[in-house]
Amino acid sequence: MNLNNILFNPAGDAVPPNEISKKIDRFGYNDAVYKTIQESKELDRNGEVFIRCTARILSNFGMSRSGPFKNVNIDNSGNINGREKLLECWKEVGDSVIEVNKSILVSGYSRGRYLLEINKRECDKLIAKIWSIMKQLLPFTMGETSYGLVGASKILFAVLPEIVLPIDNTQWLKVFKTVDIGDVINRMVNETQHWETVTGEKLNELDHLGKLTTLPSVYNVMAMAARPNKKGE
């Protein structure tokens, strides 16, 4: 299977940087993602940053319409509806998420390029940790008609936007064709490295407004664009 189909076209050519920048300009979630990247830089023990960031991402990405996070949202004044459900998630994974967050803060690596700057051994350990946290979240994100992968990935993106990709159902099924977040992260890292080698550009620097500044936030724009058209499914 050809895994280079997000930052590369079907002929194997790298998607031009200016084309990616244009897709970023048209992306509908830039403001929500920007606030998430800014606010999640350092997490607190009480989970207030977690609750605020997850409420924003879940509601903006359509997860509050139905399912376990129905009606979860944050208004313009910062008032949060459904914080009890989010606090349950925090109590389960908070310690582990803070551990990852602190390791990023003290690493000395660029936050936006963290996945590319750590070595392979560190990356493998990080991915194993993320997969473990995601499995802890699944009982909270699982719904009557879903396995919880979408909700769990979006929650992790909300607090670790330098590592995790927010993945919807179509992406899991049609783009990545896996249920393992580790496979997705590895693929993102490998394809990004290849694309940057070919183009000489840095993927996380393609948003001219400086809102999407982490590798997953930019890669997500392209991963959403790579979803097959419904008519052709």
Rank of each mutant, 00 (worst) to 15 (best):
T141R: 06
N79Q: 13
V100W: 00
I98V: 06
V150M: 09
N101Q: 04
R111I: 06
W131K: 15
E144D: 14
I118C: 03
G78N: 02
N79I: 14
N79C: 10
S103L: 02
N76L: 09
S132N: 15
S110E: 09
C123K: 11
Y109I: 01
L149F: 10
K120G: 07
W131N: 13
E99R: 07
K85D: 09
G94C: 08
G151S: 10
V106M: 00
K125H: 06
C89L: 14
N119Q: 03
Y114K: 00
S96A: 14
N101V: 01
N101I: 01
Y109E: 08
I130K: 02
V72H: 07
I127V: 09
L149C: 05
N101R: 04
Q136V: 08
M142W: 12
G151M: 08
L105V: 11
G143R: 03
W90S: 06
V106Q: 04
I74Q: 04
N71I: 09
G112D: 04
I98Q: 05
K85V: 11
V72G: 05
G94R: 04
E122G: 10
I80G: 08
A152T: 05
L149T: 07
S107E: 09
L105G: 04
E88H: 11
R121W: 12
E84V: 12
I118M: 10
E92D: 08
R111F: 06
G151L: 06
S132A: 15
N73D: 13
K120L: 11
E122P: 04
C123P: 00
N101D: 01
L115W: 01
N119C: 10
G151D: 09
K102T: 04
E84W: 07
E92N: 08
D75R: 08
E88P: 05
K85P: 02
G148W: 05
I133R: 02
C89E: 13
L126P: 01
R111S: 04
N79M: 11
R113L: 10
V97M: 02
N71R: 10
L149K: 07
T145R: 15
S96C: 08
